[in-house]
Design a protein around this nucleic acid. Structure first.
Lengths: 206, 206
DNA sequence: TCGAAAGTATACCGATCTGTATAGTGGAGA
DNA sequence: TCTCCACTATACAGATCGGTATACTTTCGA
């Protein structure tokens, strides 16, 4: 083994990008198992040889799909907060509500079928699947985010109150994504935002 | 066409029941597209001929799986409320919280991977699929249930307040099911219950 | 200029997919 | 007793699955 092996990294050529774009759209809209590699290659205008030269396996494309979407969401959120909050003077309340606003904007454009992580988890049963940590990692990251923001708001000593509030915000947000994807009622993320606002208003009296 | 056609109804023989039981378990644990009819037949200890004689198609088994699970959940809930509430004297608060308690008990036993409707929706893209109304119907039923209970609690004139509260309870509950399936944090349904309790306590001051 | 990398085109592999065909068995009711 | 009917057993059809092989072309930087 003279050369350094790097079986992990994908060389992101132009064709690879088109493949990933097609896969992201198809996986999200139709589900992972319902989409074959032949269809992905065809939609990307690429031969299967190229697809396997770049990614090596379908499983790999799935992992890349989920990590890519997660990264784009986090970048979208960071930019949204930058654009809509005065970093120095924004209140803790405003920060929390801005997350819901960002999620609403994201979902309106890219989230017609709800959360891609939840949907992927429905299709992946094996916890040893390489996509599993991506899915759970995204949820843990969101929970940590809400908990941190809740800590800024609640300002208690032990942090248990921040945990409680963070988890409640997480549930409201997660429920809103599901309700959005399933069209349970109109604009559920806006409703979640309003209820988060009311929750923060009355929080210290619980 | 002398005989009355009834292509809808499935004759529920003993073999059909075993097929459905196997399908329910496999579909829920591994996903719908990941499970083939050969596997279902094998797990049920039945030949494929019998499977197709009873159900006619895999799609039909999927519909029967979802409707069956929905019916069982509603029966479970009704029985739970009967057993844990004094029908005549239970307060509106207690009724709402009992729904969360029932959901927690159900999920502990049958809901390790979250909501089967949400998971099925992740795999079914076509709104014309016969399973679609089953999925959306279950969510609408739950929303109507929460809204009705919220109406008993809020007791306003126009019902808009009941709608608001019902939707919030729906989001909390839906989020808890997702968090439970993804193991985002321990016992999210109990947390949702506690937060619903706090929400009802402070509701009239919003 | 020349060689490596990235790409196309096409054909193929074995496995698995949903669904069907044929032939036969066992039991229960009229 | 005879006739449905639910069932087993096995084989097969045609399509699609993920993945590979062979041969050729394009692009581009050292």
């Amino acid at each position: 083994m003279g050369t350094t092996e790097q079986p992990q990294r994908v060389t992101m050529t132009r064709a690879a990008r088109r493949i990933l774009e097609a896969a992201e759209r198809l996986f999200y809209e139709r589900g992972i198992h319902a989409v074959g590699v032949d269809l992905i290659a065809a939609e990307a205008g690429v031969t299967k040889k190229t697809l396997y030269d770049r990614f090596g396996s379908k499983e790999r494309i799935v992992v890349e799909y989920l990590t890519g979407r997660d990264e784009r969401w986090r970048a979208f959120l960071a930019r949204y907060l930058d654009d809509h909050l005065d970093a120095a003077h924004a209140t803790p309340e405003a920060r929390v509500l801005a997350v819901f606003d960002a999620s609403r904007a994201w979902s309106a454009e890219y989230g017609a079928k709800g959360c891609s992580m939840v949907n992927a988890h429905a299709e992946i049963s094996d916890p040893a699947h390489p996509a599993f940590p991506v899915i759970t990692g995204q949820k843990q990251w969101m929970l940590a985010l809400f908990t941190r923001l809740a800590g800024d708001f609640a300002g208690d000593v032990a942090g248990t109150d921040a945990d409680r509030l963070g988890r409640t915000l997480m549930l409201l947000h997660e429920g809103a994504l599901v309700a959005h994807g399933l069209r349970v009622f109109p604009d559920p993320i806006a409703h979640a935002r309003d209820q988060a606002e009311a929750l923060l208003r009355t929080w210290h009296s619980t």
